[in-house]
């Protein structure tokens, strides 16, 4: 019973962070069809800036966290303005090949960002201070309040995202853009503005994920590629562009990993998830909740 509870709590928190990390990536894909491989690097950037501002500049964890999120948003816009826009407008390639070029371009952007992070912050992993100190005891388990808070914040952000998409004009326009950009343009929306909004939203989500991650498990420039791979896995498993699908996929992978670590061996943590992934894709080639 104690073990079950522990698995539930642990899986809940891990799943929430996974889901938050993947949410931005899947929205970007949904609206603009871009698989942003710079994702992990942007998440790590937010984490490292938050750590630097909080501890080295003595701004405190809340201002530091804010600085981290801001850095992620700014960097996302840099990526959009210097790489995504020029490539999308380039006439030197066929339209159906654009995704390939964007995807290599974001990969290069990730390498550049990672190199700069390593140069500025070093490659040694760091962890930010806990957002909140202390522990609570749930049924004989000691759970750090910080982890609980992280899970709650992640869920609040996801809930806010859902409210935004479902109930605001802009959010609905964004959803519509992911279904039919042309239709949206016909009814008078400026699709460029929608993209601007989506990239900003993406930066915000990646930034928050990075700051939470840094206080839970720490971060270093070297984990950027792994973070991208994990988020990519979740996004594909959930069905590209499907936010709820990503949420489900994040929890499936989170719980499976936690269960394996508790019941079999911590060193095999990732393997059942990877095998399940192959099986699911074999049965459902469009992902769990994909549309096609």
């Amino acid at each position: 019973m104690e073990l079950l509870l522990q698995i539930l709590i642990s899986g809940f928190i891990i799943g929430a962070i996974y889901a938050l990390g993947a949410a931005g990536l899947t929205i970007i894909f949904g609206v603009s069809g871009i698989l942003n491989l710079a994702h992990g690097a942007i998440v790590v950037l937010a984490a490292l800036v938050a750590w630097y501002c909080a501890l080295q500049l003595h701004m405190g964890i809340y201002w530091g966290g804010l600085a981290g999120v801001a850095a992620a948003v700014v960097t996302t816009y840099v990526l959009y303005a210097l790489v995504v826009l020029p490539l999308s407008r380039s006439r030197q390639m066929a339209a159906d090949e654009l995704p390939v070029f964007l995807f290599v371009a974001t990969l290069l952007f990730a390498l550049i960002l990672q190199g700069l992070l390593e140069w500025f912050f070093g490659s040694t992993p760091v962890a930010t201070p806990a957002l909140i100190d202390g522990v609570i005891h749930i049924g004989g388990n000691t759970v750090p309040l910080n982890s609980v808070l992280i899970g709650v914040v992640a869920w609040m952000v996801l809930g806010g995202l859902w409210l935004f998409i479902s109930f605001t004009r802009l959010g609905k326009a964004m959803l519509a853009a992911s279904m039919s950009p042309r239709g949206l343009a016909i009814i008078g929306y400026d699709i460029g503005r929608i993209h601007l909004l989506v990239w900003g939203l993406y930066g915000l989500l990646a930034g928050i994920a990075g700051v939470l991650l840094a206080s839970f498990i720490g971060a270093s420039s070297g984990v950027a590629i792994n973070l991208t791979a994990t988020a990519f896995t979740i996004v594909i498993l959930g069905g590209l562009g499907n936010v709820l699908g990503s949420l489900a996929a994040a929890y499936i992978l989170g719980f499976l990993g936690t269960l394996t670590a508790f019941l079999i061996a911590p060193s095999l943590r990732e393997i059942p998830g990877l095998c399940l992934l192959i099986i699911i894709l074999y049965l459902r080639p469009q992902g769990l909740f994909g549309r096609h």
Partner: peptide, 14 residues
């Protein structure tokens, strides 16, 4: 497309 890409990525990770 990316769905096959994921399988190849998983193969490398495994």
């Amino acid at each position: 497309g990316p769905y096959f890409g994921l399988v190849t990525l998983v193969a490398v990770l495994l």
